[in-house]
């Protein structure tokens, strides 16, 4: 088992496999600028909430050049997300529609009030038909991520796993996405995951 590729996104900065991703900055939010710099041509991106945007961009970066090409349906790939505040960022948006004086709940907002939607968005973009799961823990924990990786790969049908810490709340943006496969290489141990998380 190895970490085949990884990506780190924090406010105003993105590293893919440890190398800075050049982003042409503008007045727009950082994630929008990052999207444009990746030339994804995926207009659905603009409908997404920030949690999904962050997860989809990180998945895009780790899957570039991999065998998960977005064209071939992949039954052997899983997507697993973890974070601390679940979908609270989108929850607060939905809440704004519930004021008694202006009560207009919107399905386009409500649908994002589930943390696992980000795994669904990644699955759609890359035709991933294996497992999708989401876990909530108090704070980033390389130890918990290593455990989740081990448990997900105990499904013998899964050869490849996208595992991401995707924390988005207000201005807070903290993403570590990894592509794990069953080949030999740097193992997804807590120690290795920690050093990727602390990369700068």
């Amino acid at each position: 088992m190895r970490i085949a590729s990884h990506c780190r996104i924090t406010p105003n900065r993105c590293l893919a496999n440890g190398q800075p991703v050049p982003v042409q900055r503008s007045e727009r939010p950082y994630l929008t600028d990052l999207y444009h710099s990746l030339s994804m041509g995926y207009p659905k991106f603009f409908k997404m909430d920030n949690l999904c945007k962050a997860g989809v961009l990180a998945a895009e970066l780790v899957l570039r050049g991999s065998s998960v090409d977005g064209l071939t349906p992949r039954h052997d790939v899983a997507v697993v997300g973890l974070n601390s505040s679940s979908s609270l960022d989108a929850d607060l948006q939905h809440l704004q529609h519930l004021h008694p004086d202006s009560y207009f709940p919107s399905p386009a907002v409500f649908v994002y009030t589930l943390a696992n939607i980000v795994t669904g968005e990644i699955a759609i973009r890359h035709k991933i038909l294996g497992e999708s799961s989401f876990y909530v823990i108090p704070e980033f924990s390389a130890h918990q991520m290593a455990k989740v990786i081990a448990t997900t790969l105990s499904d013998a049908n899964i050869n490849c796993l996208l595992c991401g810490w995707i924390e988005v709340l207000g201005q807070e943006l903290d993403v570590l996405m990894m592509l794990i496969d069953r080949l030999n290489g740097p193992a997804p141990t807590a120690q290795n995951i920690n050093s990727l998380y602390n990369e700068r």
Binding site: H75, E121, A123, H126, I128, E131, S132, S133, N157
Partner: peptide
Amino acid sequence: GAIRNDANHIS
């Protein structure tokens, strides 16, 4: 037990 995604639509 098994968990599988449709990779089709979010809602």
